[in-house]
């Protein structure tokens, strides 16, 4: 039986990213009449194997080595190359996160195949059995449908574009894979700063209040923080606000930033470049507040307010305080 291999990057517990890639892997395997396989990597993978089994991974390829306790590209790449040579999958799926972005193209090159990054959806063509992948191009202004010339197709899926897998307990077959050699990490980490966001994580927030160029400076993000805080939400930003140094890059929403899918996405002083909207198009309701009625953001918004945020946000905060 042919296999769709999904690659997990977790240690111990399954992340939302992993559930999404397993969910997508199951759906692709079922469309192809293939089985689902999962690759897990780490110093000790038994907890992860058990967790993957709970979500229907029938075949688990595990690479265990003390050197793989923490993620590093060269080591994980060697591990995945060994898994692919053993598993011979028809497709290899990643999530377009920090790891998937760098692993997918490099792994494909090692297998002498092609990779696709930031895939939004796929379908299997009945007549030919080819997998057609859809990917946004030109910053989301166009959609490309592509096929990868030969198996395995190595694909990184856009976050929040696939339904997470549901529980589906199976007794997995676990295959231990030993890479011929695992290169040492060529880099020494001198400092790692995990930015703890006060309150909710941007990607999990039910309400996101984002600011852009229209805010004019870093000090004006305080009012967005206040509103987001009241609503139990998080603050995001456009690329212009990040490039201007007003907020840290971990707050950037968009194609090359965070992909968010809140109930409400409030875009304040954001003109609405396609590249930005790509990061929030999954929101239930996008609200745009902008002085320019011609701003493209209104084309994507469900609700629009033409006006200066300085006139609208203070009474909005007051109103929100009344109802919560």
């Amino acid at each position: 039986m042919s296999l769709v291999l999904t690659c997990l990057m977790d240690q111990g517990m399954l992340s939302r990213d992993s559930l999404e890639v397993i969910g997508a892997g199951k759906s692709l395997a079922s469309d192809l009449g293939a089985g689902l396989a999962v690759a897990v990597i780490g110093a000790e993978t038994s907890a992860l194997c058990a967790a993957a089994g709970e979500y229907g991974a029938g075949k688990i390829y595990s690479v265990q080595d003390a050197s793989l306790e923490q993620y590093y590209c060269e080591g994980y790449l060697a591990a995945l190359e060994a898994v692919c040579r053993e598993c011979k999958p028809v497709a290899v799926l990643f999530v377009t996160n920090m790891q998937g972005r760098e692993l997918a193209p490099r792994l494909a090159k090692r297998l002498n195949k092609a990779a696709l990054v930031d895939c939004l959806s796929f379908n299997v063509e009945h007549e030919t059995g080819r997998i057609i992948f859809t990917k946004p191009v030109f910053g989301g202004k166009a959609m490309a449908q592509v096929v990868l010339s030969d198996a395995p197709a190595v694909v990184a899926l856009r976050r929040r574009s696939f339904e997470p897998a549901q529980q589906d307990q199976v007794e997995p077959e676990i295959i231990q894979v030993k890479p011929v050699s695992i290169p040492v990490n060529p880099f020494k980490v001198m400092e790692r700063v995990e930015e703890q966001q006060a309150g909710v994580r941007l990607e999990d927030a039910r309400v996101v209040v984002s600011g852009g160029q229209g805010l004019g400076g870093p000090e004006n993000f305080a009012i967005l923080e206040e509103l987001a805080g009241l609503l139990g939400g998080a603050v995001g930003a456009s690329r212009v606000a990040v490039d201007s140094g007003w907020v840290s890059s971990s707050k950037q929403v968009g194609q090359t930033g965070k992909i968010v899918a809140p109930d409400v996405y409030l875009a304040v002083g954001i003109s609405g470049a396609c590249q930005h909207l790509a990061g929030c198009s999954g929101a239930k309701v996008i609200v745009a507040i902008n002085t320019d009625p011609e701003a493209p953001v209104f084309g994507a918004a469900r609700l629009g307010v033409v006006g200066d945020y300085k006139d609208v946000l203070p009474p909005l905060i007051k109103k929100v305080k009344e109802i919560i």
Partner: peptide
């Protein structure tokens, strides 16, 4: 090596349905 073959390229049709919230002042 492997190639990516383009099968189609389209501009997605997006219908703008923005409801404008009005008012005398902020």
């Amino acid at each position: 090596g492997g190639r990516i073959e383009l099968v189609s390229l389209e501009i997605p049709v997006k219908e703008a349905n923005c409801e404008m919230i009005t008012g005398e002042n902020g």
